[in-house]
Design a protein around this nucleic acid. Sequence first.
RNA 1: GGCCCCAUCGUCUAACGGUUAGGACACGGGCUUUUCAAGCCUGUAAUCCGGGUUCGAUUCCCGGUGGGGUCACCA
Length: 491
Amino acid sequence: MSMVKTRFAPSPTGYLHIGGLRTALYNYLFAKKHGGIFALRIEDTDRNRYVPGAVESLLHVLEAMGLQHDEGPILTKEGLIEQKGSLGPYIQSERLSLYTKYAHELLERGLAYECFCSSERLESVRSQQGIAKLPTKYDRHCVTLSPEERTIKHTAGEPCVIRLKIPDGETTFDDLIRGRITIHNQEIDDQVLIKSDGFPTYHLANVIDDHLMEVTHVIRAEEWISSTPKHVLLYQAFEWDIPQFAHLPLILNPDRSKLSKRQGDVAVEDYLRKGYLPEALINFVALLGFNPKADQELYRLEELAELFDIEKVNKSGAVFMTDKLDWMNGQYIRTKTPEEITKLSQPFLKKAEIKAPEEILIKICTVEKERLVLLSDLVEKTRGYLILPTYQANLLVWKKSTKEDARLQLQNIIPVLEGFNNEITGSSALIEMALREYIEEKYLQNGNVLWPLRVALSGLSASPAPFELLWVLGKEESLRRIHKAITMLEE
RNA sequence: GGCCCCAUCGUCUAACGGUUAGGACACGGGCUUUUCAAGCCUGUAAUCCGGGUUCGAUUCCCGGUGGGGUCACCA
């Protein structure tokens, strides 16, 4: 039994789809679980879809997500692409001669044939089949071409493709998730292997590379099930060992169709940009398809790798809803220190052009941490500490109190705060102790004092406790805000 | 339409013949509380339908229904 090897083989589109993330993750987990190799291969055989910089950005997200591959293209410190591993190159556009070599081998052995049909002819064949309600497939017009006819067409410069000649019979493969799947070869089209521009199609390149790169387990999305028989036929034509297949259930839009751009954000980059943490995204997406334990929701990547079991992956698709992701993100934010959150929030604050001393930012994170769902939530929160939000005077009045009392309480608290020494103002716990003591001594009500104070300090109907606000804002700014509130209440 | 795949609370899932069908998110109520958040307690909520097999089916089989995928010189 050779070593387990999986691969994530995306086409470089410029972003990583949520479904792609999960495919990459499951490949990674399966390889790690079995002490095997996780490879990355770039499937860029469609020159019409070429996106500059796409490989680099893919490498960046994968790294941000913590999914390190053992083989494949990697980014150097200088931002250049290098290859890691001995079975490369791992970028298909750099392997073109390989594909034509194998395609010609099939040609010589009579397992494939050249086809000169124009796309116009193919379209009209298909549309006629459509009208006749027949399955749409190539009519094998070129399969009987004689060598002489082919030579004539070649010398005339007619473009041509190479097609696989699908044999009679039926094709069966075993899927680790779904079991045995059989289909009649009549259902399979004579698949193009080499396009007229000389590039291979996915089917050919994928099979050749998986074999040459010694991939043992092909883990990919369910949308590939119907083309898997073609791949099996190719392996058989080359007389190669067939890898194990595992087709993952689809990730769905709320209407249960395949997750698509039209119905919301699908790029991992979008979610990162919104302020989701990589570990939350990984955790969430891992659970879209299986759950290692019945009563646990939070898993680290290493833990998932230990517990992963491909046979326990669900068969049915999973709707992508962000409610639970939001909750998870909050959970992960809470596991971080204020210093870590401060650091992670830098890009968001920078983008919003918010500047503040690190010391203040750390205090803000300390106090707001439990209230965060997204890292980006920190933007508005931080702004509130730097600039007092505008608010209505009657917000200062507690529901069980009056405007006059609110003003009185604020006025009375000023000397108390002024009396705080540096030791007290340096700790929200000490501030709380001192203020509660004050309230108790004067026989006051918490609400009468703390509500107007909190609103004066935050300008908000909902915020952290006044003690914490005081600690973050400092004595001077706090007093300034209280004076402002008193002025508002006097009007 | 042909072929293929799938089917447990609104959503993500657990239960691989015997459970009061479990957990989580969301939602409702409560506790705590100056507000919000967090936390704790608690409530509502599901086996698509019909046949079999079996002493017994969420679970196995068949059929239906429903949903999805795929039918390119895209991956």
